[in-house]
């Protein structure tokens, strides 16, 4: 027992001569990988439409419950969030919302430097989060693989879909 205590003291002592693991952050910015998990953005699909379909999975995955949204339906049949709100003063930047997002709408960016004097300014709405591009996934469009028809994509026109069945045919 004593040997182990002495050993741990020795091990700790040796760190006097090892390099610091930390950097002096505001003076010296560390390298952040492009896929670093900072704050979220909402992306658009290749056609420029919102990718978010308001499925609520991000909200339910969120450990501090800081995402809230409401589904609404466009005239073209797409689901879309009527509002999408994230309270960044509660966000822990865990990225579970990105993992949960089935449409690649939520993507994390390396930006995490959000400082405000007023906490109220940490509440971001959809308008603050939407970017104009597709983010990391350039070609993905949820509605091209989903079975729901929207205007401009009828039944049977999605990827890997057969022509709609005509019930009145013989269907042999």
């Amino acid at each position: 027992m004593i040997a182990s205590q002495l050993r741990s003291m020795w091990l700790v002592f040796r760190h006097l001569f090892s390099r610091n693991a930390t950097v002096e952050y505001p003076d010296e910015k560390p390298y952040l990988a492009p896929r670093y998990r900072g704050r979220i953005v909402l992306t658009r699909d290749p056609d420029g439409d919102e990718r978010c379909v308001a499925c609520n999975l991000c909200a339910v995955a969120c450990p501090p419950d800081c995402i809230s949204l409401q589904k609404t339906e466009d005239e073209d049949g797409r689901w879309r969030p009527e509002y999408f709100r994230i309270n960044f003063s509660r966000c822990i930047m865990c990225g579970l919302c990105e993992d949960a997002c089935p449409t690649y709408a939520i993507q994390l960016t390396p930006d995490f430097e959000m400082c405000e004097y007023d906490r109220q300014n940490m509440v971001y709405e959809k308008e603050d989060l939407l970017i104009s591009g597709p983010g990391k996934y350039h070609d993905y469009s949820f509605y091209r693989v989903a079975g729901m028809s929207i205007s401009g994509k009828d039944k049977g026109e999605a990827v890997n879909e057969a022509e709609p069945v005509d019930v009145r045919s013989l269907n042999l």
């Binding site: 700790v12 002592f13 760190h15 006097l16 090892s18 390099r19 610091n20 693991a21 930390t22 002096e24």
Partner: peptide, 13 residues
Amino acid sequence: RLLGFWQDRPGPN
């Protein structure tokens, strides 16, 4: 400072 060095960080500097 010492604790910092032992924990691989600078400590108050």
